[in-house]
Amino acid sequence: MPIAYSPGLARFEDVCGPEEAEAFLDWVRSDPRPRVDLSPGASPHAALLQVLLAARPDLATPPDDPFLAAILADLPVSPDPDGSAAAPPPSPTSNRALVS
């Protein structure tokens, strides 16, 4: 799976195609503090870029491609997800519990 979702973090790996866009948009909309990790070598499709630009989630790190980084320059970078580094197994209920 090119995008690995866990509460509060979506990790892009390798080539992420346009077919991921819908799921990613849903995740960004439902997650209260969405943060995106563009791991080195991750290459999002323009459809995903649109969601990134429209939703402006935090970035874990700037992407390693300087030009992709330039395009995403307006997105805030937050290396640490409010202290809780390791995310528990994903489940909608636990997700909500964490926030409340």
């Binding site: 346009p18 866009a21 819908e22 990613f24 948009l25 960004v28 909309r29 323009a46 459809a47 995903l48 870029l49 649109q50 969601v51 630009l53 429209a54 939703a55 030009f67 330039a70 395009i71």
Partner: peptide, 26 residues
């Protein structure tokens, strides 16, 4: 030989609920 790149939109992004990710607005 790319020296500069930026992605913009003609109109501001809509609400996420109204965003169609498959329609290219970039």
């Amino acid at each position: 030989d790319l020296l500069h790149v930026k992605a913009v939109t003609d109109e501001p992004w809509p609400e996420l609920s109204a965003l169609d990710p498959f329609q290219c607005r970039l």
